[in-house]
């Protein structure tokens, strides 16, 4: 009698359709089977095709701002593909630079849903035995140095990233030693989300002055996430890993 087939183990990456998330997917695609999440089905498929061994990876198109539907959608997706998640990387994030007077509660709730509550809900679901067979080992949240410092127009973004880091520390303590939980805090990396800031020459010049090592690349963040996911970081949990070209050391600039 043959053994029952072993379910495929995967790493789930949210926000994989562009920017840091896409680079992360490509960087991790050699070592892991991936479940790629993003809003845009077509761009998600482009990410999959840019990965090593595209046939090994799955696309899961879904808007995380609708966090309440994840409790049915994620288990159904994993069941459908007989997949188990060993690693979870939360890259999805909304950033709308708005002065406080223009912020609406509805928009703030979208930001908190995508940036924080989706991370909480997905981690919660991946810990359920009936959903993921206790397979989860490592979680990395892509936070931001905006969790540590203020900036004009960043009220909802700073609040969401500080909340994400708080969630990360609490989960690191609660889920040890089975699951490690860390966050990576990038500074200004050139991605579609931040391109608008780099387009303005005055802002671009200020950014270059503030960053001792210049602007970062998505691969710089992907390297840090890949390290935290791996066994080489087996004794690292609850850490906010700053990857920012020296920006936070240079905060007096």
């Amino acid at each position: 009698m043959s053994e029952p087939p072993v379910p495929a183990t995967s790493v789930l990456i949210t926000g994989a359709s562009s920017g840091i998330g896409r680079e992360m997917a490509v960087a991790l695609s050699g070592a892991y089977s991936l479940i790629l999440n993003g809003r845009d089905e077509e761009r998600l498929e482009q990410t999959r095709l840019a990965c090593q061994a595209p046939e090994r990876h799955l696309c899961w198109a879904r808007d995380l701002a609708d966090a309440t539907t994840l409790a049915t959608a994620l288990p159904a997706f994993l069941r459908q593909h007989d997949a188990r998640v060993v690693g979870f990387v939360h890259c999805a994030a909304l950033l709308k630079v708005l002065p406080l007077r223009s912020v609406t509660l509805a928009q703030a709730q979208d930001v908190m849903n995508t940036n924080v509550l989706a991370a909480l809900e997905i981690t919660r679901l991946l810990l359920r035995k009936d959903v993921n067979s206790k397979m989860l080992r490592s979680v990395v949240f892509v936070s931001s140095i905006a969790s540590q410092f203020g900036a004009r127009g960043f009220a909802t973004y700073c609040a969401s990233k500080a909340a994400l880091d708080g969630l990360m520390k609490a989960l690191a303590v609660e889920l040890a030693p089975e699951v490690r939980v860390n966050s990576v805090l990038p500074g200004g990396v050139r991605t579609p989300m931040t391109e608008a800031m780099f387009d303005d020459p005055a802002t671009a010049e200020r950014l270059m002055r503030d960053y001792p090592l210049g602007a970062g690349l998505p691969s710089d963040i992907a390297n840090a996430v890949a390290f935290l996911m791996s066994d080489q970081a087996r004794w690292i949990t609850g850490h906010q890993m700053v990857v920012d070209g020296g920006r936070s050391a240079n905060i007096s600039a």
């Binding site: 390297n223 920012d244 050391a249």
Partner: peptide
């Protein structure tokens, strides 16, 4: 791999400081 990391402290502590 640490090309864009400077001026930082990387904590390797099994969660000691997170508590």
């Amino acid at each position: 791999t640490g090309r864009w990391i400077t001026g930082s402290t990387l904590v390797v502590d099994g969660g000691y400081l997170a508590r």
